[in-house]
Amino acid sequence: MEYNVKVWRQKNAKAKGHFETYHVTDVEEDASFLEMLDILNDQLIRKGVEPIAFDHDCREGICGACSLYVDGRAHGPDDQVTTCQLFMRHFKPGATITVEPWRSGAFPVIKDLMVDRTAFDKIMQAGGFITVRAGSAQDGNSILIPHDDAELSMDAAACVGCGACVATCKNGSAMLFVAARVSSLALLPQGKPEAARRARAMVAKMDELGFGNCTNTRACEMECPKHVTIDHIARLNREYLKAKFSE
């Protein structure tokens, strides 16, 4: 199969970017979207064109590295997938496919399709943890957790930190990402002593780093590859309010 790939090229963070269109040939029907980019890169290198830079690693939808805006959607036209789990069978042969990096002020472009997501790490460093030292934990079964609470907590913990929620949000809000962590922990008895501090600190850091506010458009949950829902944003809001009143 053959495709035309209209792709964002940007030499580095300071350079001005632009679109280029390339023709890619010999793509197998079962190829993944990133395999198509591998094939295109191979063809570009042989023609003396610099290959397209993009983040990727596990290629099985769990590391959260891949982060492409394909035909106007975060992670492309399939639902609940990361870009690496998007397959070429979703595109008509000969189609022109537009590929862009995440567009958000908090995620500056590093090169071509790669962005800098260290803002997510910084939010996590602000409070996305339980303060427990190795060696001080009690027996695992001394903390009983109802089955359904553990499952709900796991629903939120499934977040891969890819940033699709931010990229797709018209406000560039990171609420779903922050909510996934806060809600996952809020559903468990562990870490309760620092729950208020956590909610305050993570929200404050998110605001400081230039992410926008949440206006409940639900775009984030539509594009989240792990189907983290905005119920968790509601839980974050509750945690945050509780924390504010306990100040």
């Binding site: 009983l144 553990a150 468990l188």
Partner: peptide
């Protein structure tokens, strides 16, 4: 024990045990 304390949501039985 360490991972449970960190908030790792391990699968649980209906009684709440791991």
């Amino acid at each position: 024990d360490q991972c449970v304390a960190q908030g790792v949501p391990f699968a649980r039985e209906y009684g709440g045990y791991l």
